[in-house]
Nucleic acid binder design. Structure first.
Lengths: 229, 229
DNA sequence: ACCCCAATGTTGTCAATGACAACTTAAGGT
DNA sequence: ACCTTAAGTTGTCATTGACAACATTGGGGT
């Protein structure tokens, strides 16, 4: 955060963007509930009512942030899928990992997107972005199922289960307390394991961190259906 | 909510309990962020500072509610496990279902327990209850693994995966928007399916709701390891 | 080049809230 | 019956979101 002292110019230049940036920083540091429009204005060296020129109220600012975040989320997750190649299951796994990674890389965006209050007051633009988000996941889940994954489940169940899990993992890893007390070494590996548990719990671990897995038993059988991806 | 009009007695009788009850009602209806000590006092017909005799501040009230809720949660989940019999996997599944059911039956308790801010300001009593909660789940997960479930995963991973999923499902079902737009008929059946996906995704559905599952294919093979519970 | 107006910020105010202080009431043990 | 003290009350202050009325300035049309 760069503070410019008493502003030399009457007009800020790009207060709207500055507000969104600072809001994201505050949300990432102290959570969405601690956001205060007046504090934001103070941080940026403008008067307490200046933000109202750009956002009618707090919900409006959060809506804008959520829209930005939702679009960024879509791009992030889609890019991960593309990078994963053509196998629908690998694509779906990559999206699951990207979901969790996004929540850690952009906690402010993620918390805003996921906040029930924000979602409840979504305008048409945000609703549209949410819909796109939902569609991209649904489509990928459908493709994964078509490739042989969980053939007996309804697509709604599959999607709900997948989202619930990545959402839960994101919430747990994003909670400063939980992650502080459980001393996680390697987030990437943890995310991989969580997504593997969603997609193919019967498969044996591929690259194993000796500290985080159990003793090697099981000579070869047991996971007869392994290697689905 | 029963309002007694201008109180006839100077003393309320049991304001502490009344505050907790009313707080739970408000949280269930409007969410934890909408809770206001002054509104609570108004609802109960006492002065705006009366609550401070029982709770030093808002966090203190939420802490009390969370402690109550955490203890109730433990009893609820433990009872479900006991009712499920001796099979560790069935017990674990019953606990998972109970987790989600608790969040729907006691949304105020659940939201309070799960609120990061509340957890962050936990006192020793609440921390102790949280620890018991954590232990009961860990033990059950260990037993389930000892009974053959996911033998290759670390217990921490198993617990994180399980909790993340039930937590995510609870969040999704507890969000008025999500459940309003997705028209869920039978919560019990949905919860069963979600927990089955955690514990034994390869197993075929047992009692099937034709509307929520796919066409029956798969004559018999494929789920060779089924019926673990 | 000039002027004017609309976008952008500012000061001022109000109601709601959490938190605290100082005062008041009544309930129950001795 | 008394009187200590738990339980409520009124009063006040700082913070905040929201709004209204006023001030400044930069850029576009003439």
């Amino acid at each position: 955060m760069t503070t410019y002292g008493p502003s030399l110019t009457y007009h800020h230049g790009n207060l709207r963007k500055a507000l969104l940036d600072r809001a994201a920083a505050v949300i990432a540091e102290q959570g969405i509930e601690c956001l205060s429009l007046r504090a934001l204005a103070r941080d940026l060296g403008v008067s307490h009512a200046a933000p109202s020129r750009h956002f009618t109220d707090k919900a409006d600012l959060l809506r804008a942030l959520a829209t930005e975040g939702s679009d960024k989320f879509i791009a992030y997750v889609f890019a991960a899928a593309e990078a994963a190649g053509d196998n629908p299951l690998e694509r779906y796994a990559a999206m699951g990992k990207a979901y969790i990674r996004f929540s850690l890389e952009y906690p402010a965006y993620y918390r805003t997107i996921a906040h029930p209050e924000v979602v409840a007051h979504a305008d048409d633009e945000l609703k549209a972005s949410e819909k796109r988000r939902s569609l991209i996941i649904n489509d990928a889940a459908r493709a994964a199922q078509a490739a042989g994954w969980l053939p007996d489940e309804s697509i709604d169940d599959i999607v709900m289960f997948s989202i619930a899990t990545v959402r839960g993992v994101s919430a747990m890893l994003g909670d400063p307390l939980h992650s502080r007390q459980s001393e996680i070494r390697d987030y990437e590996a943890l995310i991989d394991r969580m997504v593997r548990l969603i997609i193919d719990p019967a498969a044996p671990q591929k690259s194993l961190n000796p500290a985080t897995r159990n003793d090697e038993k099981q000579p070869g059988g047991k996971n007869n259906e392994g290697d689905r991806m």
